[in-house]
Design a protein around this nucleic acid. Structure first.
Lengths: 100, 100
DNA sequence: TCAATTAGTCAGAAAAAGTTGACCATGAAT
DNA sequence: ATTCATGGTCAACTTTTTCTGACTAATTGA
């Protein structure tokens, strides 16, 4: 956690970059552009990952507003993570990054 | 450590992001756009940093080709770090990031 | 000669990030 | 009743990253 009394006087990019660069996060983004994601599907899709990391990355991305978590309260009750407006805004940035 | 035989089949952005998001790196970039940087000047300019982190970040940025390290062998002999071509290429990306 | 500045390196400690395996509640199928 | 799938949480451990303090070596100034 950051000290509460110094928000970010010097470098806004630093915080942003940190939010986006956690383990598996770029992969989550990349899969999210193709539509909503479900937890276990993601777990199977990303080789080498694990529940815990995935869960905390997803939570951080939701908290930061890049993903929306939607609980579909139909009969089998499942959960979907999909890109928010803010999340879609960073996609072109990832693409630029890739052709750097 | 990663297995040596799987470079990056899935996500190029991940590696790039990692290179750019090390501690103090965004700040180094931000200061580097205003001209060449010297080690101790940097140490004084970035509050809260330390020799070791700065040195390794600088080395990593040089190794990755974002910064050029130039030894000025004049009378007092000093060293300058400045943005390379590649380094200048990422600056707009940082700027986009900041107005996200 | 003594102190200061520049540009670092090194070893070890501490902190942060990531991984593992066990566990839980719900609901559906057998 | 047992097993399977979903969507997680938790504690403990390991790995990676960052920080601290001591030290080096060359040069300059008093």
């Amino acid at each position: 956690m950051n000290s509460p009394h110094k928000a970010d006087p010097a470098c806004p990019a630093e915080a942003l970059l940190k939010q986006l660069s956690g383990k598996w996060k770029p992969q989550i983004f990349r899969l999210a552009v193709n539509g909503p994601l479900r937890f276990n599907a993601l777990l199977r899709a990303i080789e080498g990952t694990n529940k815990q990391s995935l869960a905390s990355s997803l939570n951080e991305l939701v908290e930061a507003g890049y993903l929306d978590k939607v609980v579909i309260s139909q009969k089998p009750l499942h959960i979907e993570y999909s890109l928010s407006e803010k999340g879609r805004a960073v996609v072109p940035l990832f693409m630029q990054l890739e052709l750097l």
